[in-house]
Write a protein that binds this DNA or RNA. Sequence first.
RNA 1: CGGGGUGUGGCGCAGCCUGGUAGCGCACCUGCUUUGGGAGCAGGGGGCCGGAGGUUCAAAUCCUCUCACCCCGACCA
Length: 570
Amino acid sequence: MRLTRSLVPTLREEPADAEALSHKLMLRAGLVRQLAAGIYVWLPLGQRVLDKVNHIIREEMNAIGGQEITMPVLHPAEIWQESGRWNAIGGEMFRLKDRNDREMCLGMTHEEVIAWLAAREIRSYRDLPQIWYQIQTKERDEARPRSGVLRTREFLMKDSYTLDPDEAALDRSYAAHEQAYRRIFDRCGLRYHVVESDVGMMGGFGAHEFMAPSAAGEDEIAMCDGCGYAANVELARGVPAPPEFPAWTREDVPTPNVRTIAEVSALLKIDPRLTIKSLLYIAPKAGPVLALVRGDHDLHERKLARAIGEEMRTAHPDEVRQHLGAPVGSVGPIDARVTVLADEHLQSGTYVVGANREGHHVRGVVPGRDFQARFVDLHTVTAGEACTTCGTALRVERVIEIGNIFKLGTKFSVPMRAMYLDETGKERPIVMGSYGIGPARIAASAIEQLADADGIVWPWSIAPFPVHIVLVSLRDQAQVAAAQEIYAACAARGLDALLDDRDERPGVKFKDADLLGMPVRVTVGNALAKEGVVEVRDRRTRQDQRVPKDGVVAAVEALRPPRNPAGSRS
RNA sequence: CGGGGUGUGGCGCAGCCUGGUAGCGCACCUGCUUUGGGAGCAGGGGGCCGGAGGUUCAAAUCCUCUCACCCCGACCA
């Protein structure tokens, strides 16, 4: 591709409304442009990256027996009503009506279509197992699109679905996907971790996420270097170090004008770990629920939601007063006439809690003796807590979710009547799995993980072009001819090259080459006339070699990493 | 949905407080010089100042409403 005839609008300055590194670089390198919040145009170079990623995905999906299909983006409401998600999903689904006033929606995911298709086409155990996948646009009206292409309202997703006769077969399909995903992310040159993840409110038999470490990520994972335990913090458990408990006797202490844990512990001159934080939530069915965590801990709301079995919201200040008889800063579990859930690590010890009387706390409170509660895991794990299985200190890392795998079970096949007849002629529901990968997130993660101060550093496997030829001076006919020759020689060997044939100053071309981040830069310049050589530079290491122009292809190929460049795994 | 911020040529910004000819850098066009890390000089083109109302002799500037975008949080099947 010749730069003079291409749409590669690089930007010298940082766009004002980009925050994440990958977002800035994708805009500056001319990979994407934003049409509206969370809606992007993919420009030629960005499109080539997606194409490369998708090609890898197709190879690995096909290798485990995946069959590519294409499902509609526009869905009739009926299938979503049958599965029960039409009402279960809120504002995140784009809904519309056709000209005949029929309700429709835009597909956020395709379990319903798969179940619909399976219900019609799968009849016998002989038809199973199946793996169906597509690479298709998804539409989700995200509450807050952010970080460039990392969270958008319209995005490409590779989604696959497995159909199996039973759970043992599902386990095999699931394992095959996990292996395929590892190969895909390895080939894309990413560092990633595979972690246990929340199955969500829809239930399911297990789920894992593939997480690429990056400061731009929206998720956090906890990892144990001792035994390999790794989980999303939505799920991760850890054992916090207990404080030293003083020999308190239970007594009321006045705490005027004190609202926060920090204020309580400062006033009483105690370690915040000796306090209990009491938070009131309101759940639709369960009603008011008081959640307790140690003073220095954060409650993880998803853990609480899992514990009570439904989504809840924080109580308003007047609701707190109504249910507990005290303002927010003075509430606690003693004599509270609401359901009390306490973090499991509060089962022992003696604490300071709110007295449910304005301006008062109680010191020397022993959970189990002074109040009753259901003890469950509620606190958000923090770095340094001990691993529950081996005791090693946990690490917590910020990550981008690049893929997930999910054992659905019969959540969709039962309501949508996707059944088959087993060997004995008995009708059974198909056991499903669902598996996603975000190609745009792979691209952004690669940028996040590999970029340097000068710009993007693409892994070979997903670079828009492996070779970037910089033609330094258009006035030197020998340079022009040599650049053309090298360009043609690369093409002849299947190496796509980007040729910078613009009439720009060398500095501009070098800066753009660094920004665009192709793995190899070939500079055709002065050295050609003087010494008959061109320079072949590795973008990542910045190592230069001077080679005769006939040796460029060999030099480029020597720089190419072996087929499966190792990404780090866990 | 709650909180905060920003909207002024393609990009990045100043001007707004204290109303009075719409500016700067980069990019773009022309010419000359220059040509290995974002060139220099000279000349030039391009902006309903997000939108709608209002106040005023006069509004980018003040007031009201509204829209868009960004950030933090909530949500994320």
